[in-house]
C-alpha cells in the first residue's frame, strides 16, 4: 500500500509548482551571460598562461582561446620566476595592503567617531571639506606629493639610538602612510556611526565610560558591516597601486606586484608570461573574494560603489 500511495501524494505537489515565467527565464539567461562576461576573461587569462605566444593569437578567433588545447605547459610560469622577483613583490603588496587597511580602519573610524559623536563646532564644515577632497583625482596630486614626501622627516632607529632622517622616498612607509587617511572611509564610517542610537553613548557615559571606551567597546563592535566595507575598499586600491610606487620607489626589493606587470612589456612583448604573472597575482584576490564573498557583496550593495 505504502509503495502505491507515496508517489500519488507527491504528484499533486509537483503539479502545483508554478511553471517558470518567461521573465524569470530571461532573467536567468541574462545572469548567465553577465557571469560569462566576468568569468571568461579570467578563464582566458589562465588558459593563455599555459600557451606559447603565437598560439595565444592563433586561438583568438575561436573557442580554443578559452580551452587548454595545443602546446600546453608551465613554461610561462617558469619564465615569470626568471624575469620578476614575484615572491618579493607579493610579500611587499601583502604587507603594504595589510598595513594600509589596519591603520586606515583605525584612523578613519576615529575621525568619523569624532565627527559623529563628539561635540565639535563646525563638524559639518569639516565633514564637507573632507568629502570635497574626493573630487581631486590622485593623478593631479601625485607629482607635488612626491616633492612633499621627499621633504618629510623620520626617526630612524639605529640599535638603541634614534636618528632624524630626511625624505621618505624608496621606503615602505611612503607606500602606506599617504593612503591611511581616506575621505571616503571617513564618510562611510560617519554615516554608519550616525545610524547607531546616541542613547547608547549617554548610558555609557553615565556608567563612567570615556570617549575612547565608547568608541572601542560600543561603537566599533556594532560596526562590523562598515568595518568590512572600508577594509575591502581600502585593500583593493592598495593592492592595485601602480602610479605611486613607480614614482617613489627605486629599489626593486620594495616594489609591489602591479609594477611587476611592466617587466613584460619589452620590444617583443611576452604575452604568455604576462598572463601567467597576472594569474599569480590575481589568485590572492580571488581567495580573499571567496573567503569574504558576503561582506564584499554587502559592501558594494551598501555603498553603490564598484569594488
Amino acid at each position: 500500500m505504502a509503495t502505491t500511495t507515496a508517489p500519488a501524494r507527491r504528484q499533486p505537489a509537483q503539479a502545483l509548482r508554478p511553471a517558470p515565467k518567461p521573465r524569470h527565464i530571461v532573467g536567468t539567461v541574462a545572469k548567465i551571460v553577465l557571469a560569462l562576461v566576468f568569468v571568461l576573461p579570467i578563464v582566458f587569462m589562465f588558459v593563455s598562461s599555459l600557451k606559447p605566444d603565437a598560439q595565444i593569437f592563433s586561438d583568438l578567433g575561436s573557442i580554443n582561446a578559452f580551452l587548454p588545447t595545443g602546446h600546453i605547459s608551465f613554461a610561462n610560469y617558469a619564465g615569470v620566476f626568471d624575469r620578476v622577483p614575484i615572491v618579493t613583490f607579493l610579500m611587499n603588496s601583502v604587507g603594504i595592503s595589510a598595513a594600509t587597511v589596519i591603520l586606515g580602519l583605525l584612523v578613519n573610524s576615529l575621525a568619523a567617531f569624532a565627527l559623529s559623536r563628539m561635540r565639535l563646532r563646525g563638524k559639518k564644515i569639516i565633514l564637507t571639506a573632507i568629502i570635497a577632497t574626493l573630487i581631486v583625482p590622485f593623478e593631479t596630486l601625485a607629482l607635488p606629493l612626491v616633492w612633499w614626501v621627499n621633504q618629510l622627516p623620520w626617526l630612524q632607529v639605529n640599535g638603541f639610538s634614534l636618528a632624524l632622517t630626511h625624505g621618505w622616498l624608496d621606503t615602505y612607509r611612503v607606500q602606506i602612510i599617504p593612503f591611511i587617511a581616506n575621505a571616503f572611509s571617513v564618510y562611510l564610517f560617519h554615516q554608519y556611526f550616525d545610524s547607531i542610537p546616541k542613547e547608547l553613548d549617554e548610558a555609557a557615559r553615565m556608567d563612567g565610560a570615556g570617549w575612547f571606551q565608547i568608541y572601542r567597546k560600543i561603537i566599533m563592535p556594532l560596526s562590523g558591516p562598515a568595518i568590512a566595507t572600508v577594509a575591502i575598499l581600502t585593500f583593493l586600491p592598495a593592492w592595485n597601486s601602480y602610479l605611486w610606487p613607480i614614482m617613489v620607489v627605486q629599489s626593486e626589493n620594495l616594489r609591489p606586484v602591479m609594477v611587476g606587470v611592466e617587466y613584460f612589456y619589452q620590444l617583443n612583448v611576452a604575452w604568455g608570461q604576462i598572463m601567467a604573472y597576472t594569474t599569480l597575482i590575481t589568485l590572492p584576490i580571488l581567495v580573499l573574494f571567496i573567503a569574504f564573498q558576503r561582506s564584499f557583496v554587502n559592501s558594494i550593495a551598501s555603498t553603490g560603489v564598484k569594488g
Binding site: W147, L169, E262
Partner: peptide
C-alpha cells in the same frame, strides 16, 4: 645598479628629478 621596468621608466625619472633624487 638600480633597474626599472621600461614602460614606466620615464615617470620614475621625472619623479626623481622633481624631488632631486
Amino acid at each position: 645598479v638600480q633597474a626599472f621596468p621600461q614602460a614606466s621608466y620615464n615617470q620614475s625619472v621625472v619623479a626623481a628629478a622633481a624631488s632631486g633624487k
